[in-house]
């Protein structure tokens, strides 16, 4: 790019400060009371788990049939509080958090009338979708990291740290354990980003953010429900949520990469398809809100 072009075309985020619009979007999400309250609820779950296990220990430390994944390992190492909380919250709480952000993304702006003013600033519609999606993905990561972080702290306080005994029986150091926890957070963020892409598309269809959020949660629930019907097992690998619980494979030694790779590919496919759909829909839409 020549100097003239650089001068003629200001940087992505406005003159002077890079990514100014993206920052504004993130602060809009972060300052919203509803989102703060939601994050607090997400953080409460691992604390409840840790206290419950601590109070019941050692008699019921074994967990028993039907107990959530990783629960039985908690008394051995506090790290497992984070994992148990993630395993519980990935089914409903984390998807609801993403659905709330994604539902709001375009429909929320349309609903309060800010969409028409953003577009006449002007914000190019593709740029608006890109910033909105970046906000959703950032929100998904922060939500996941909050669950993991609170779980880790609560677990370390109540049960202590030390070497981590993996599902496959081998033992790794606490440092590697933390690395793997981070990898799990990133994997789950990718999974939730796929739901976020579906959500962004849904959000371009309506001016009612609450309706969009409910629709996104229903998509998520439908995927879980279809996933437990054995008669349609041919469909299962294509379901949005099919690979999500495979985050546990990152805790094997050696790591079971195959399902993780499938999960990431599946998420990428959902992201590409639904972001394209959102772009096609929103790019051509008459904004009458």
């Amino acid at each position: 790019m020549s100097a003239v072009e650089v001068a003629a075309r200001p940087a992505t985020g406005g003159v002077g400060v890079p990514f100014r619009f993206l920052r504004s979007e993130l602060s809009l999400i972060a300052r919203r009371r509803r989102n703060q309250a939601g994050l607090a609820v997400l953080a409460a779950v691992p604390i409840v788990i840790a206290i419950a296990v601590k109070v019941a220990s050692p008699t019921s430390a074994g967990g028993g049939e039907g107990a959530p994944q990783f629960l039985s390992s908690i008394s051995g190492n506090g790290l497992f509080v984070a994992l148990a909380a993630l395993a519980l919250e990935i089914q409903l709480f984390l998807p609801i958090a993403v659905a709330a952000l994604a539902g709001d993304a375009v429909a929320g702006e349309a609903n309060v009338g800010t969409l028409r003013y953003l577009l006449t600033v002007p914000v190019h519609r593709t740029r608006l979708l890109a910033v909105k999606y970046a906000g959703i993905v950032a929100g998904a990561f922060i939500a996941t990291a909050t669950v993991a972080g609170t779980g880790l702290v609560a677990g370390l306080v109540l049960f202590g740290g030390g070497d981590v005994t993996l599902l496959s029986g081998t033992t790794i150091g606490m440092g590697e354990g933390l690395l793997r926890l981070l990898a799990i957070c990133l994997y789950l963020t990718a999974c939730l980003a796929a739901l976020g892409a579906v959500g962004l598309f849904v959000s371009t269809l309506t001016e009612q953010p609450m309706g969009a959020t409910i629709a996104i949660v229903m998509v998520n629930m439908l995927s879980w429900i279809l996933g437990v019907i054995p008669q349609i097992d041919w469909l299962h690998p294509y379901l949005l949520t099919h690979w999500w619980e495979n985050f546990g494979d990152l805790l094997r030694d050696p790591v079971a990469w195959d399902p993780v790779r499938h999960g990431l590919l599946s998420a990428a496919a959902y992201i590409v398809i639904f972001l394209s759909a959102a772009w096609a829909r929103f790019g051509a839409r008459d904004v009458t809100s």
């Binding site: 940087a11 985020g13 406005g14 003159v15 619009f21 504004s24 809009l28 309060v112 800010t114």
Partner: peptide, 25 residues
């Protein structure tokens, strides 16, 4: 008018200005 109800008038204008690529921060 169309603005975010839970932001102040000032913050609403800041957001619109942040969205403008040609505006100097």
């Amino acid at each position: 008018p169309g603005f975010h109800p839970y932001l102040s008038g000032m913050d609403n204008l800041r957001r619109l200005d942040a969205a403008d690529r040609t505006a100097r921060a």
